[in-house]
Amino acid sequence: MARGVATRLSRVEPVAVRAVGALALASLAATVVLGLWFTPEDQVMGNLVRLLYVHPPVAWVAYLAFGVTAACSIAYLWPRTRSPFWDRLGAASAEIGVVFCALTLATGSIWGRPTWGVWWTWDARLTTTALLLALFAGYLAIRRVTVDPAARAKRSAVVALVAFADVPIVHMSVLWWRTLHQPPTVFRPGFGDPTLATPMAWTLLLAFCAFTLAYVWLLAHRYRVAVLEARMEGEGLELALAERRAEAGYGEGPGGIEGGAGSGGDGPGQAPVPVGAR
């Protein structure tokens, strides 16, 4: 089944990924323009409400990414669906999740400072998110130090599930811990919130779509990296030997090889992640 998914993915992948990338870029640009200039200010929060179009969508993507990692881990541990596909997809998603989780904390801090007067507060959601970041940083760490691919896949899947099971417990305990002292302080954005003006609601929806598309796009590219890494692990030694031999033969150093491979590799048909796209 996983193989089927992978095959289908590879068939439609070049076109679909590029389409998703283009959509992600366009919608992100639209979100920025709408969010920064065309949406009204909030009566209570003033200009700061514009962070609404960044912070909650980023947080949503972080949770989504970790959820995908957990789902992939289950699929990997289940003997019938076990396949390297799930392992790689889970790893790719976790890495993106860590990036978005860190961004969630950063943007939350930037929002919290003018709103609450502090960079950090021991709110249940903040604390849970911080622990989540630490948990999945551990997941990435264990992937990095394990050499054998099968063992790594199993161990990291278990780590991901254990980490994911911890999230509700952490959240509930911290919630209870803090609510003994103070009412929840986080401004609750809700799409159905009647206080949210219509342009704001639509921009928020757009922002959610934009960041989710960006996640899907990054995931597709990061998955390819995972596949190439696995290939590298398999062929690493032979390749290194071949390279050394080639170096000795041509006598012109690694530059010659790089040039030769580069001309075959990054042809015009390739769609590398545009580094300077923004």
Binding site: L131, A134, L135, G138, V159, A163, D166, I169, V170
Partner: peptide, 9 residues
Amino acid sequence: LLLMPVVAP
């Protein structure tokens, strides 16, 4: 690194 965040609760 792995254990401390998990046992935080």
